[in-house]
Each structure stands twice: as structure tokens, then as C-alpha cells.
């Protein structure tokens, strides 16, 4: 099978600071890939590069068999992305917003409205479909965002911290959706720092730290090296397994 994502020696700079220091990656279709790492490790930068937001990269990147440098627009048309910080025009209603997004993808208006109504209904939002989103909770916005990222039925979906802010029931629902998307042959690439979610959901886990991939494999493979939970594993791999000692020092400093 041809991989949906191929990254060869990707370097990404912010000013003179090197954020990604040579990422090599190949993702096969139909997988759920969990991309995890501490804050500032380069998770979002990798995703933003892959969706064509940061075109000033070094190295070779191809997405869905398309060269990201020359065919970024075609890539954008065929992938879905749900950003982390729930940014949407909250003065619009969900219906209006989804129609707007559909128009940006040049989808058929009637189709978009029908699809949006159904999806909103499935997310229990049908009674809010025509009220402005400025009154919505973070979870409700996240649902609308999720729909807006999937509306054009993309083959490859990038989710940046997809479960943050969702209530417990919706978390279960979204996990199910991610699973079934993958089962139907689509690829889901998502970033997170909530370890136990990653553990249960991912076919493959990639850990990134300080701009470099430091672990890559199924949960079982990663666990084979250590008999610990992913959280501890994560701490060990990122060289940050001194939490207990740090917590003690923290209390000490407070008591001074």
C-alpha cells in the first residue's frame, strides 16, 4: 500500500530556532496515529507543516501522494483538519458556519446543508443549529469544529488535541468516530498529551521530544521495552521521569 504521509528529513525553523530537527515518517492508510510529546516538542508544528500552513520547510514531504511544496492546494482540498484552539466565527450559527466552510471547499450547497443538519443532529446539536455559537460551551464548539473538519469527507484527517474540552459522553463518541473512520479506510493523525487516551485509541504511537522522534511503534511494541503505563513510559522516553522528586522540591520551596 502506498503511504498517505511520507516525511523525509523534515526541518522546520522559527526564526533561527530549529523546531523540527529532521523528522522521518511514513504512515500507511487506515491507521490511527497518535502523535504525542510534551508542550513545545513540535507536535503542532509537524501538523501545521503537513496541512500546508508552514510552507517554509526543509526536506521532502508528500501527503496523499502529492508533493506538499508544489501541490499544497490539492492537498488542502483532500485533507481534514481540526485545530486545537477552538477558533470559529462564533457570531454565526452552526448551520451558517458549516455552509460557509462547505463553500470554501466548493461543495454543493444543498448537500452541505443536508449533511450539516444530519451531523449536528447526531451530535445532539439540532436544537442549537440556528442559534449563534457565541453562547456555546467549549464542548459544543468542538463538536461543530469537528464536523467542519470532516464535512468534505477527507481521506486523511488531522486532529490537534481532539478531545480537549469535551464532556465524558462526547469523548466516548468521538473516540468511536475516530475508530470507525480508520476502519473505513481513512487515516487519522492526531496529537495529544493525554496519555491514557492515546494508549487505547492508537494503532501506532509516535513520541516526539525537542523536535525529534524518540519512539515509534504500536503500544504493545513500546510496552515491550518497559512494563509500565504509557504515562511513565512517556516520562522515561522524554527524559522527564523525575516528577516525584520535582513535586517534593516544589512543596519544599513553598514552605520556605
Amino acid at each position: 500500500m502506498t503511504p498517505v504521509i511520507t516525511i523525509n528529513n523534515l526541518h522546520q525553523f522559527y526564526g533561527t530556532t530549529e523546531i523540527l530537527k529532521g523528522i522521518n515518517l511514513s504512515v500507511a492508510p487506515g491507521q490511527v496515529v497518535g502523535y504525542i510529546g510534551p508542550n513545545g516538542a513540535g507536535k503542532s508544528t509537524t501538523i501545521k507543516t503537513l496541512i500546508g500552513l508552514l510552507p517554509d520547510f526543509q526536506g521532502e514531504v508528500s501527503v496523499l501522494g502529492l508533493d506538499l511544496r508544489t501541490q499544497a492546494m490539492e492537498v488542502k482540498r483532500r485533507i481534514g483538519y481540526v485545530p486545537e484552539n477552538a477558533a470559529l466565527y462564533d457570531l454565526l450559527t452552526p448551520t451558517e458556519y458549516l455552509l460557509f466552510v462547505g463553500q470554501l471547499y466548493e461543495l454543493d450547497t444543498v448537500m452541505v446543508n443536508k449533511k450539516a443538519a444530519e451531523l449536528l443532529d447526531l451530535f445532539d446539536l439540532s436544537q442549537h443549529a440556528n442559534s449563534r455559537m457565541s453562547t456555546f460551551s467549549k464542548g459544543m464548539r468542538q463538536k461543530v469544529l469537528l464536523i467542519s473538519g470532516l464535512l468534505h469527507n477527507p481521506d486523511l484527517i488531522f486532529l490537534d488535541e481532539p478531545l480537549s474540552g469535551l464532556d465524558a459522553n462526547t469523548v466516548v463518541l468521538v473516540k468511536q468516530i475516530i475508530r470507525q473512520l480508520a476502519d473505513s479506510g481513512k487515516t487519522v493523525f492526531y496529537s495529544s498529551h493525554i496519555m491514557d487516551v492515546v494508549e487505547k485509541l492508537s494503532d501506532r504511537i509516535i513520541i516526539i521530544n525537542a523536535g525529534q522522534i524518540i519512539a515509534d511503534g504500536t503500544f504493545a511494541e513500546l510496552q515491550a521495552t518497559r512494563t509500565t503505563s504509557l504515562e511513565q513510559l512517556f516520562g522515561q522516553l522524554t527524559g522527564n521521569n523525575t516528577q516525584t522528586a520535582t513535586a517534593e522540591a516544589f512543596i519544599q520551596a513553598l514552605n520556605q
Binding site: K48, I51, G52, L53, M73, E74, K76, R77, Y81, P83, N85, A87, L88, Y89, V101, L104, Y105, E106
Partner: peptide, 13 residues
């Protein structure tokens, strides 16, 4: 830049 997170990753040039 508030538009970025909404539009930049979509197929709009």
C-alpha cells in the same frame, strides 16, 4: 490572524 485558524488550512489561496 484570527482568520488563519479558520481558513488558511482550507483550499483557499
Amino acid at each position: 490572524t484570527s482568520d488563519n485558524q479558520i481558513m488558511l488550512f482550507r483550499p483557499v489561496d
